[in-house]
């Protein structure tokens, strides 16, 4: 029983940071690759094309 609780706890303690890292990653990727604000688009223009993101 104790082992079970420990295992569940360990899994959860890793799941939350992993989820947070993934959300942060998607947010940053949306910012560099997808947000259409003019300044961001112009600065990242060549990278967006070269990385295969939909641009324009």
């Amino acid at each position: 029983m104790t082992t079970m609780i420990k295992t569940a706890g360990a899994t959860r303690s890793k799941l939350v940071p992993a989820l947070f890292a993934a959300v942060l990653g998607v947010a940053l990727m949306a910012l560099t690759g997808h947000v259409q604000a003019a300044a961001l688009h112009d600065a990242a223009h060549d990278v967006r094309h070269a990385t295969g993101f939909p641009c324009h």
Partner: peptide
């Protein structure tokens, strides 16, 4: 222009690294 491209490529792949590491840590489990 090319300096900005370098910066944005580094940012993009840092974002991808966060997503990849999240998956890797779950895989490690």
């Amino acid at each position: 222009r090319d300096g900005l491209s370098l910066i944005f490529t580094m940012l993009t792949y840092t974002a991808y690294a966060l997503i990849l590491l999240a998956a890797m840590s779950l895989g490690e489990e």
